[in-house]
């Protein structure tokens, strides 16, 4: 059981929670994730990256977007509630060293897992450029936190409501093209399609590009292979071999197909969940 110490809504669908988990705080490193369940009996296990940790409070920070039934339920937990199942830290930590110039690219909610990595890269002496992308201004998260870390922060929105009206790949390409700004390493975290195109952008320039994969997981400890991906024609388990891999070697198309394995069912579960909520709201009204 892990008590929720703090909760805030970062944007329309995005929430931040600080959860009491002293053992995880002690061991966790940048790049690692946890698995949680909102119900011990019937809840599903979902992975979430550890966005930050507070040693004094013994808490980890989780940032999540409401996209399905479990994240909807999670968003309904409040300060003082206990998360019934929280396990971690899982996965391999990010390899951190002084690469020189690094570019950190975060798309949407991907900025949350990117945050501790950018933090660690900065602490290791790197010159950090951060590119944040989102559909619109309301969906930009952690701008202040990233600004505190990055030597250079570039913000892009699809609709131009804030920062550049561009996809994140546009400034990334510009940085690669110019010898003075060409990064020694890029790390991209966000929707699979964005990570795919970031990898395609850097490939012609031979810039090593790390991506953090967000596949379907069940146990998160390497015993089922539900999270497997093709990396350079080898089968890898994201939960134990990753979550980070060389973006130039990842078969993103297969990964995206596997992510949609249960597509129909997920929509159904969320629908049921919304119906439940409506029903509950109506009950309240009657009272």
């Amino acid at each position: 059981m892990a008590k929720i110490l703090h909760k805030e809504q970062l944007s329309a669908d995005v929430y931040l929670m600080r959860v009491h988990a002293p053992l995880i705080v002690e061991e966790r490193k940048a790049g690692q994730f946890i698995i949680l369940q909102t119900d011990e009996e019937f809840g599903e296990r979902i992975p979430l990256t550890i966005a930050d940790a507070n040693e004094e409070e013994g808490s980890i920070t989780l940032i999540f977007q409401v996209v399905g039934k479990t994240t909807t339920e999670l968003s309904q937990f409040n300060v003082g509630d206990d998360l019934p199942v929280l396990v971690g830290p899982l996965g391999k930590p990010t390899h951190i060293e002084n690469f020189g110039k690094v570019v950190c690219v975060g798309g949407g909610i991907g900025v949350a897992p990117l945050h501790p990595i950018a933090q660690a890269l900065k602490a290791a002496g790197n010159e950090v450029t951060t590119i944040i992308g989102a559909r619109n201004k309301d969906l930009i998260i952690l701008e202040k936190e990233m600004k505190a870390i990055a030597d250079n922060l570039i913000i892009c929105t699809d609709d131009g409501s804030y920062g550049r009206k561009d996809l994140v790949t546009a400034p990334l390409k510009e940085l690669c093209e110019n010898e003075a700004t060409k990064p020694n390493m890029v790390i991209a975290i966000g929707p699979p399609i964005m990570m795919k195109f970031c990898s395609l952008t850097t490939k012609p320039y031979g810039v090593f590009t790390q991506v953090s994969l967000n596949t379907i997981m069940v146990d998160g400890t390497g015993m089922c292979g539900g999270c497997r991906v093709n990396v350079g024609n080898h089968v890898k388990f994201v939960c134990v071999d990753g979550p980070e891999f060389d973006g130039h070697l990842v078969d993103f198309d297969n990964m995206m197909a596997r992510l949609s394995s249960y597509k129909g069912l997920e929509t159904e579960a969320l629908h049921k969940c919304n119906v439940d909520k409506e029903f509950e709201a109506k009950l309240e009204e009657k009272k």
Binding site: V218, D219, C224, G225, G226, D251, N254, S260
Partner: peptide, 18 residues
């Protein structure tokens, strides 16, 4: 790695444990 190929561990874990 096609969609619809499972290890028995995953198939049974989903069904039994979950």
């Amino acid at each position: 790695n096609l969609v619809g190929v499972f290890s028995a561990n995953e198939y049974l874990t989903r069904a039994n444990l979950m």
